[in-house]
């Protein structure tokens, strides 16, 4: 498990443009967030009361030595964490599905089947697919949505990370939300 200073160091190196540090940072943060999310899900059995953005913030407080990092580093961290978070969520949803159709497919009781249908795992997978589709259509908008949705970045923070105006971020965010909503609703209705 990476220590606070490791992560902070990686963050600083990545900030200076070190690609390897950036990759390593993402991996470390991914591991960390996965762990935290798993704990959170265990704690609150109501599955997706898991607040992605709150978790990212918590991770920041836990992993980064705030005395050594300025706002830029903090924003950078959150951007990385947003990416990690989206991966964690989709992995979680997928692994639950895998479990569902894997070894214990016979044992799913009627009751469980309903409970499963209620969780947002399918939504999560739809969301992931929609996000992938968006990435192909409009890369920047995808980044904006990822940062805001999973990392909880404000539009100013996202603007600074992406080197665009916050008005552009707002436009992308507005379009992105509506587009996602439509994509997911239609995906759901087309499914039968």
């Amino acid at each position: 498990m990476p220590s606070e200073s490791d992560i902070t160091q990686l963050l600083e190196d990545a900030g200076r443009g070190n690609q390897r540090a950036a990759d390593e940072l993402l991996e470390s943060v991914y591991e960390e967030i996965r762990e935290m999310a798993a704990n959170a899900l265990r704690r609150e059995r109501s599955c997706h009361t898991l607040q992605a953005t709150a978790l990212v913030h918590e991770a920041y407080l836990k992993l980064v030595d705030q005395t050594r990092v300025d706002w830029k580093g903090a924003t950078h961290f959150k951007a990385v964490a947003a990416k990690a978070m989206s991966r964690v969520l989709i992995d979680h949803a997928r692994s639950k599905n895998r479990e569902k159709r894997g070894g214990n497919w016979r044992k799913v009781t009627l009751h469980d089947a309903f409970a499963l249908a209620k969780t947002n795992d399918l939504d999560m997978i739809c969301l992931h697919e929609a996000m992938e589709k968006m990435r192909k259509l409009d890369k920047r908008q995808h980044q904006v949505v990822e940062l805001r949705l999973f990392g909880g970045l404000t539009s100013d923070e996202a603007a600074k990370i992406l080197h665009v105006s916050s008005r552009t971020v707002d436009r992308d965010w507005k379009m992105g939300q509506v587009w996602l909503r439509r994509e997911m609703n239609e995906g759901a209705s087309a499914d039968e």
């Binding site: 009361t49 509506v178 587009w179 996602l180 909503r181 997911m184």
Partner: peptide
């Protein structure tokens, strides 16, 4: 179609924007 979804209520992204 996009406008319809802007105006539509939605719950699907609730948990994500729960900052």
């Amino acid at each position: 179609s996009l406008l319809a979804h802007r105006d539509a209520p939605t719950v699907s992204l609730e948990f994500d924007s729960s900052l």
